[in-house]
Simulated scan of single mutants.
Amino acid sequence: MTGSDIAVDQPVLLEIFPTGAIVGATRRYEKHLGDMQDVYADNESWVAQVDALGADLLVYSVDEHKYQDGPGALIVGTSKLLPGRYGDEFSITRGHLHAKANRAELYYCLSGRGVMLLDTLDGQSKAIELTPGQAVNVPGGWLHRSVNVGDEPFITLFSYAADAGQNYAVISRAGGMKQLIVADESEQGWRAVENPKHTGYDETDLRS
């Protein structure tokens, strides 16, 4: 095979703003309060918020650009997680493990203040705070979820392999992630605590 036999996509200029907007995005999706059933450990507080604010309240949105599906392609996008509280718990995304679990992902904080909550199937758990200018390189094999611990939108720029896919069910089958990020009176304003509903992961959790 020669160089002329290889299909080559054209470079794409994207405009990415601190608000999370992307000029040139190919896809956008949103999650609303009603979509977050059984995501928060404090389900009663979630129900109360739905009753008070409505199921259509926007919780987070994702804008992304994908130029192809083949091996080696990247998805680049932004995630905008709005602030909120559910009892002591901060607003979170659903979180996922990649369907191809060895795929890594980079998150770079554009604005706001948040925590990247991470687990492995063998029981490791980490909570990494992100502020503008900081990034976390999430290796393959780590489940990950964004948490907004501030009073303004937590906006991140992300990039991962286009063939990675997402496995959302792994977290729900385990009763949530191993730790919760909750408010406290410390200077940082949050702490990680054990999730009493977490039942652990096993190899069957690699199902998509």
Rank of each mutant, 00 (worst) to 15 (best):
D51R: 14
G176H: 06
G200R: 01
E30N: 12
M116L: 14
Q68R: 00
R207F: 12
S45P: 00
S125C: 08
A25I: 03
E64P: 04
P153M: 03
D69I: 08
A161M: 09
V138D: 04
P139H: 00
Y60E: 05
L74F: 08
H96R: 06
A101Q: 13
L106K: 02
Y40H: 01
A52K: 02
D205W: 00
S125Q: 05
D163S: 13
V136G: 08
E30G: 06
A169E: 14
A7T: 15
S186F: 03
G189Q: 06
W190K: 05
G72R: 14
V39C: 11
T93Q: 05
R28L: 09
F90M: 12
R173A: 00
A169W: 09
S79Y: 00
V62N: 02
Q37G: 15
V39G: 11
W142F: 14
I16D: 05
E105F: 00
D151R: 07
G133V: 04
S79K: 05
G165H: 02
Y60R: 09
W142L: 13
A164R: 02
A99M: 02
E187G: 15
K80E: 02
W46P: 01
F154E: 06
K197P: 10
E129C: 08
A162M: 08
W142C: 12
L143R: 03
K66A: 12
A183Y: 05
L117Y: 13
R28G: 10
P153L: 03
L117C: 07
A183S: 11
A127H: 03
K178M: 02
A164V: 02
M1A: 11
